[in-house]
Amino acid sequence: MNISPDEIILFQIGSIAITANIFFTWMVMLFLVLVSALITRKISISSKISMWQNFLETLISYIQEQIRDITDQKSDPYLPFIGSLFIFVSVSNFLSFVPGYHPPTGSLYTTSALAICVFFAVPVYGIQKLGLSEYLRNYIKPSVIMLPFNIISEISRTLALSVRLFGNVMSGTMIIGILLSVAPFFLPAVMNILELLIGQIQAYIIAVLSTVYIASGTRSKKITQEES
């Protein structure tokens, strides 16, 4: 039994083996780009909008509202990063009902890549918002003794973010695989539905957690006093 889509080699281009992980990541990206391009091609600002434009607007405004709620700041700078993180994970988990599809989030490589993006996004947003010295001062709060613990927490939460998503998605595909050999008629379908739900919850959780991390990096005493 394969525990990750990295071990499944679909075809070779020259000496590079295209694994199921890479292939389905490309497919999800292609799907997202095509759908967004098709929908936004005939976008309108009148009161009469198409069904799909309505769908996208609902999605985006919901993400914006969540970001505003969590960070207590304007959502505009965070929307591209958090939104694409959420939509990518959500779609790649959601498509798992398609036969022959292996969710790319079920591979530790993909989830580590996403977690590393979050790891670097925190200082980037923090420095943009606070400036370098103020951001670095966050590490020695409340006192200098906490410096190593802050650094450890930074690394361990990145690890936790990647392993959590990987573990949930991988366990889902694995449970369905085991059930198919034990009770192949009804139970796998039920578990599949549960997996769709868990996949959406995990997409929500990774988005919310990365928003929380970014928000904690961009928050400082000076700014909260100025705004309040």
Partner: peptide, 19 residues
């Protein structure tokens, strides 16, 4: 929202064991 985030945090220990 806080519940979901907290549950994810708690659950990650179980996920580590599973992995």
């Amino acid at each position: 929202r806080t519940l979901f985030v907290g549950l994810a945090m708690i659950e990650s220990t179980a996920i580590y064991c599973f992995v």
